[in-house]
Design a protein around this nucleic acid. Structure first.
Length: 424
RNA sequence: GGAGAAAUGGCAGAGCGGUCUAAUGCGGCAGUCUUGAAAACUGUUGUGGGUAACACCACCGGGGGUUCGAAUCCCUCUUUCUCCGCCA
């Protein structure tokens, strides 16, 4: 959520930058919210004034009662009825203004960083880095879902029986490969200075609001109605919400946490070849990295996170590219996002395996995650996160790219974790 | 799930209808003293709104109520603790 104080002082810039995100309603909403803000402050002044008066009368009554002047106290009591009524009126106005402002602010996306390219669709994303050669596979190379069946690694039909489409069952070496990747990613993150946490995978409403899943993306989460809890679509939600209503010391920044969780997404409306095999699932595993950073250092932090994810992909010997997302393809909350895509040799397409973003103060404003700077002033921290990494598409690429007539070869870095070098 | 107790500032803990602008202790910060440190002493130390700056307003787990006035009384929710039941 943008800060109203920032909008107030930088109105034109805000509107201009929202245009990069193709946010059509920007000008209307911003003007509305500025007007409401004026009205809100007036209402507050009115309400405060009445309250101050009432407080004073109450104090007077107290003094009179103590000194035994009961009749005088009663007289003053008579004056309070009108004040009370006015107080309620002003409070109601104040409350409604606040709600209206909140309602609008929740609809306004984050401002894109000044370096974000304009654009509407994924075609407008900027390729900023590319690494590795696409594998030279024979024409009859198999897509991962066929390899998974051939070597009995992943059983999609069984998942349908147990739960439904998009909930695969990993078996044998397929299951072990999952476990190996999880452990590898966690060990690697720890080496990178991240503190491992194991958060709940169900969160309450407050947490879902905190990171911005609510009120907007309600339909994308599984909701446990009886207890009003949401299954997390990403570990970002619980791990970032650790810092909800927290004031950190400047010396504690940056906070670096990582965690492995299953992730749950309803993916309503998805269909076709995009969802084949592991390409898009309702439940999948992911290791997430989250940082709370000093505002002046958050872009350096973002670059560091992007480098880290690139290193993981390099170590896994997967060809990948890094995209800087254009305004139209960025998420609502992000100020700058890099997507990392691996090349899946048999499908012959790029698969997104990580998305690394700086949210600046957009999340922390909602979360009220702040730090005390050296001058003793409290200010909002910046939040960042990234996948490091999401498993299914990594598995898809590993299976497809490393297939040989003898079997599927496991990359060297994973050998200590899988303790097998080939799937055959 | 049942019965009882509790929730106060960074922490501990008092306050149980008016002066709470929340005692006291610990911790933090600044200063005095010291070559430096410790100790001692002095001051300071929550968040948000509002203002040019003051004033002022709100917040004692969340929400609602009683009252001229609520940390204090009532209702409700949540959480924690103790006991019982169940259980990986």
């Amino acid at each position: 959520m943008l800060q109203i104080s920032y909008i107030r002082e930088n109105k034109d810039e805000v509107i201009k930058r929202l245009a990069i995100k193709n946010f059509a309603a920007a000008e209307t909403l911003i003007n509305q919210v500025i007007q409401l803000d004026v009205e809100r402050r007036n209402a507050q002044k009115d309400a405060d004034g009445v309250k101050a008066e009432a407080n004073q009368l109450a104090r007077q009554i107290g003094d009179l009662m103590k000194s035994g002047k009961k009749e005088e106290a009663e007289t003053i009591k008579g004056q309070t009825a009108e004040l009370k009524q006015k107080e309620k009126q002003f409070d109601d106005v104040l409350k409604s203004k606040e709600e209206e402002i909140q309602h609008i602010l929740l609809q306004v996306p984050n401002l894109p960083d000044t370096t974000v390219p304009a654009g509407k669709t994924p075609e407008d994303n900027e390729v900023v880095f590319e690494y590795g050669n696409k594998p030279a596979l024979p024409e009859n190379a198999l897509p991962h879902w066929e390899l998974a069946a051939k070597y009995d690694l992943i059983d999609f039909e069984l998942g349908v029986k147990l739960t439904g489409a998009g909930f695969p069952v990993y078996k044998g070496k397929g299951a072990k490969l999952q476990r190996a990747l999880i452990n590898y990613f966690l060990d690697r993150a720890e080496k990178e200075g991240y503190n491992e946490v194991q958060p709940p995978i169900l969160v309450n409403e407050d947490s879902a609001y905190g990171t911005g899943q609510l009120p907007d993306k309600e339909g994308q989460m599984y909701h446990v109605g009886v207890d009003n809890l949401y299954m997390i679509p990403t570990a970002e939600v619980p791990i970032t919400n650790i810092y909800r209503d927290v004031i950190l010391k400047e010396s504690e920044l940056p906070v670096k946490n990582c965690g492995y969780t299953p992730c749950f997404r309803r993916e309503a409306g998805s269909y076709g070849k995009d969802v084949r095999g592991l390409n898009r699932l309702h439940q999948f595993d992911k290791i997430e990295i989250v940082q709370i950073a000093h505002p002046e250092k958050s872009y350096a932090t973002l670059e560091g996170m992007r480098q880290y994810v690139a290193a993981l992909l390099t170590e896994l010997e997967l060809p990948f590219r890094t995209l800087k997302l254009c305004g139209g393809d960025m998420s609502f909350a992000s100020a700058l996002t890099y997507d990392m895509e691996v090349f899946s040799g048999a499908q012959k397409r790029w698969l997104e395996v990580s998305s690394v973003s700086n949210f600046e103060t957009f999340q922390t404003n909602r979360l009220k995650c702040r730090f005390k700077d050296t001058n003793g002033k409290t200010q909002l921290a910046h939040s960042l996160n990234g996948s490091a990494l999401a498993l299914p598409r990594i598995v898809a690429a590993l299976l497809e790219n490393n297939q040989t007539p003898e079997g599927i070869k496991i990359p060297k870095v994973l050998l200590p974790y899988t303790r097998f070098g080939i799937i055959n």
